[in-house]
Structure formats: structure tokens, C-alpha cells
Computed example of a mutant assay.
Amino acid sequence: MIASSRDPKYPSALRDLGHGLFFSSALKLVALSAVLLAGALALAPDAARADSVEEAAQVCSGCHGENGVPMDKTIPVIWGQRREYLLKELHDFKTGHRKNETMAAIVDSLSKTDMEELASYFSKKQWPTQEQPAPPADVVSKALAVINQLNCRDCHQDHFQGDYVRPSLRGQSEDYLLKTMTDFHTGERANFPAMSALMKSLNEDQLKPLAAYLASLPPKVPSISER
């Protein structure tokens, strides 16, 4: 039997080490988030002053990744995402309908044309492959039960590739999917009332399998012969 850290016989040095490793990891995550936020806020005016959409996109890469894969997995992949969806989210950040301190600072000085160009630019990029592992069969079963319960395919399409206003979910970061669904569930995110209603109808235990399943799908929609 493995000794519990609460066991009086458990060596205090090991217990302290375990606590130290936990807090060290937590502090590193907080520090990374702070660095990303500070960097984005510092570069925010540069997006509006950029001479080209490529230069403006460099500001975005500070959080969303030089190669399209964000360092912080709670930040979404935007390479290859639907143009209309990206444009709507930029608009919602600018008007305050969607809350995020970093994004609010970035879009504050952007014009409608700036946002349209950025949305077009990122939508034409190839979605990066993150090779997120396929979940176990029981997790897939739980996810499919939720998908069928909510009729997710009615909006996000048969293969979760999205449409003109709904985002593609295939291969999105699992941590981001879980966070944004949780935000809809709790009311932290409220810029799409239909999603809020659907997510509030679930309990939190149903969200994680759904996020894991969607994240594991390859970004490319399978051809007819592959289905």
C-alpha cells in the first residue's frame, strides 16, 4: 500500500516536496498567463498601427501561437477557423458581449476593416495538428450520448466542422473546449444564448467527455470514402 501524505508515518520531507511541486507548477501556470497577458497588452496598439494584415497577425501569435498552436491550451486554435465565426467573436470582444481583458485590449483600436482582414487571414490558414489522444471507449460513449441529447450536429454539422457562424470543433484544444463550455454553463460566457441554454442543461461531469471526444477528432473532415 502506498503511504498517504496525511499518514503520520509519511516522511515530512516527501510531503513538503509534494506540496512544493504542486505549488511550483501552479505558480508556473500563473506566471505564464501573466506573461502572455502583459505581452498582449503591450502589443495591443501595434495591431492597429500595422501596415499589413501579416504584421497585425504577429500580435495575435503571441497568445495563439506562431505555428497556430497556443502555448496556453485554454486559448483556442484560430488557424483554419470559420471566417464568419472569427469576425463575430472579434466584434463581441469589441462591444463587450464577450469578456476577456486581453482580447478587449487587442480589438479596442481595430476598425471593422481590420477585423475583417484578420478573420479572413486566419480562416485561410491550415488548422494545426495537435495529435490529441483518442479517449477510451466509455468516454466516447458518454460524449456521444450528450451529442445526441443536445443535437449538436444540427448546428455544428455532421462532422463538427461548423458552418458560416458556428465554429469548427474538430481538433480544438481539449482544455479550451472544456473551459468555454464550462463558461457557458456557469454564465461566465454569454454571447450565444442558445449555447448558454444547452450547456446549462448539462452537469459538469458531462462536459469533460464531450471536450475530450471533440478534441480527439482530426481537423480534416473525412472524405465520403473515409466515413
Rank of each mutant, 00 (worst) to 15 (best):
E174F: 02
K88W: 06
L169Y: 02
M181A: 03
V69Q: 08
T182G: 00
G171V: 02
S173H: 14
R166E: 13
T129M: 13
A44D: 06
L90S: 00
K220A: 06
A212K: 10
P167S: 02
E204R: 10
S225P: 12
A40M: 15
A47Y: 03
N191Q: 04
Y176V: 00
A31L: 14
E188P: 03
D158R: 07
N148I: 03
Y121G: 03
L144T: 00
I224L: 15
F160E: 07
Q58G: 08
Y10G: 01
R153M: 13
L210D: 04
P11W: 08
A197Q: 13
G171C: 01
V146D: 07
V77Q: 10
N203T: 13
K142C: 00
T102S: 14
D205R: 11
A13S: 15
L29D: 13
R153H: 09
D16A: 14
P133Q: 03
Q132G: 01
V77R: 07
R15L: 04
I224G: 03
H97L: 12
L214W: 05
S168L: 14
T95W: 09
F192W: 14
L214T: 00
D183L: 04
T102Y: 11
Y164E: 15
T113D: 15
M1C: 08
Q132L: 09
M195H: 01
Y176S: 03
S223G: 09
G65C: 03
S12A: 15
Y213E: 00
F23C: 03
D51N: 13
E226L: 07
K125L: 03
M199S: 01
A212N: 05
S33G: 13
L27E: 11
L202A: 00
A34C: 12
S173I: 05
D183N: 10
P193N: 01
L150N: 05
S123Q: 06
Q130V: 12
A34W: 15
D72N: 14
A31V: 11
G162I: 03
Q130N: 09
L41I: 10
A3G: 12
S4L: 11
F122K: 00
P70R: 01
L144Y: 04
M181D: 03
E84G: 15
A48E: 12
A215C: 08
R15F: 05
A145R: 11
L144H: 09
A31G: 07
T180V: 15
S24A: 14
S120I: 00
I106E: 05
S225G: 10
S4Y: 08
L37H: 09
N100V: 05
L36D: 10
D158S: 10
R6F: 15
S120F: 06
L41M: 14
S33M: 11
S109T: 10
R15P: 06
S5Y: 15
L41K: 12
T74E: 08
G80M: 09
I78V: 06
G162T: 02
L202G: 01
E54K: 08
R227I: 11
E204V: 12
A47P: 05
L27W: 10
P70D: 01
Y10R: 02
K179F: 00
P219K: 00
P76W: 02
S52G: 09
E116K: 10
